[in-house]
Design a protein around this nucleic acid. Structure first.
Lengths: 246, 246
DNA sequence: CGGCTCCTTGAGCCCAGTCAAAGTCCGTGG
DNA sequence: CCACGGACTTTGACTGGGCTCAAGGAGCCG
């Protein structure tokens, strides 16, 4: 099975055989597991490894002094938790597992060596970081301008598209390990209101949510409600100049 | 006068004479001006140059289909508007001038050449991008968890510290080119409520705002109200391993 | 002095928060 | 196999922070 990282990066470049095997071996080495709801990195620590999510979801989160907590990002299979963050003296937020997690933990010197003299890999990782920034900006827009129902809908759309890019959507459904409390801490609303909002979405026939399975019968309508425009995910294939095989 | 970019990057590294002059000449070449409230880059365009703010403020912003608008980031003197963003096929947001703007517009090939074989510059620019990401994350926290008064206070604290890093704070005061409407589009609240919130801050003696001048008589108290912790700005000096002069 | 743009104020309303209790699901151990 | 406990979801009643609409004031520039 292809690594989800490769699946994702291939949205942007086409790798050579050498590049593919470099990435694969990085993925395969230093594999680790973490139980759900445990932290991988804590605010204040210095990160020495680059963590790559292989299976399950992770998330960035930050707590205020008085206990309020905000989820800052979701890290899906193929996402890098902290590419380059090791440059900073200490983490300004924590990273945890939302579900049982399988991930690769690559010392950053190993990553640097892999990137060395492989400009296409370097390019792809930069692209990846830019997309992560774009997602963060879109969350800013959501939290600033969208209503509760629009925020939730927008988030579910984003997850749909991102998971689809790593082949984790089947029949308009994906597995979602989030509780309503997680959604609340993501959307900046209370758990009670998340509950009522989800009921609205269900009543409008836009989602079905059973157990950990989310089904989106009519993605177009959900997109429309959320004013979701996937442009910020930059999933369009780029030019052939980054194609190793031409 | 030292370029604000150099002032900022020196929070992280100490440059050699060669590196300093490389950065200076980049700053000095391709200088441009833009009138306040005009756009430098528009959503949908492809950016070919890296823009560096020299004087005045710029800002990132994005509009939803129905006209709601969110300010995503402020770009202060020394900030790069789009380092690396040229990698993406098209801008997913716009960049405009808040005040009359003086900026350097460097073709990205020129920047790449400057970075080539100068790992310290490359490092510093990476650090810069990481800090920009950290700021974006903190805005996510603000919009998600902080109340109106906390958001405004937090923003004013952030601007204080960032401007101080480029010597633009004198006697606890800085020039702020924002209207209350700008603040509203930043904090995700209505202009009317921004007005009432500023009155609260004034009544509590935390700020004085006359014309374009903001005075903060008691920064500590403002920080406390906002639960502001400057850690995410990563302004602490890093190790000597990045010092060209040892 | 007229006409911008921006700031300020007031009154009423509504989206989302709060508090509290009950219901559901599910894993675990006796 | 069932009873228990804990985590999560759902519901109801009430509250409140921030929004809306609307009008008036202040500053600034030609």
């Amino acid at each position: 099975m292809t690594s989800p990282l490769i699946l994702r990066l291939q949205q942007y470049v086409r790798f050579s055989q050498d590049e593919l095997s470099t990435l694969q071996s990085m993925t395969n080495s230093n594999m680790r597991r973490l139980r759900a709801r445990h932290d991988l990195l804590r605010e204040g620590e210095r990160s020495t490894h680059v963590h790559l999510v292989l299976e399950g979801w992770a998330y960035r989160h930050k707590m205020l002094e008085d206990g309020r907590r905000q989820i800052i990002a979701f890290l899906l299979p193929g996402d890098l938790c902290n590419s380059n963050l090791f440059m900073l003296r200490q983490m300004d937020h924590s990273v945890g597992a939302l579900s049982p997690l399988r991930y690769a933990s690559v010392p950053h010197v190993v990553l640097e060596r892999a990137v060395q003299d492989r400009p296409r890999i370097s390019h792809a990782l930069n692209w990846d970081m830019l997309v992560a920034s774009a997602i963060q900006r879109e969350w800013t827009v959501s939290l600033g301008q969208r209503s509760a129902i629009e925020r939730i809908a927008h988030l579910l759309c984003e997850l749909f598209v991102r998971l689809d890019a790593v082949s984790q959507v089947r029949d308009n459904s994906y597995e979602i390990p989030l509780t309503q409390n997680d959604l609340a801490e993501t959307a900046g609303i209370t758990p009670v209101h998340v509950n009522r909002t989800l009921q609205q979405l269900r009543a409008q026939g836009l989602i079905q949510w059973k157990g950990r399975e989310l089904h989106v019968p009519d993605f177009e309508s959900l997109k429309q409600l959320a004013m979701f425009d996937a442009g910020y995910l930059h999933l369009d294939h780029e030019g052939a100049f980054l194609d190793a095989n031409v």
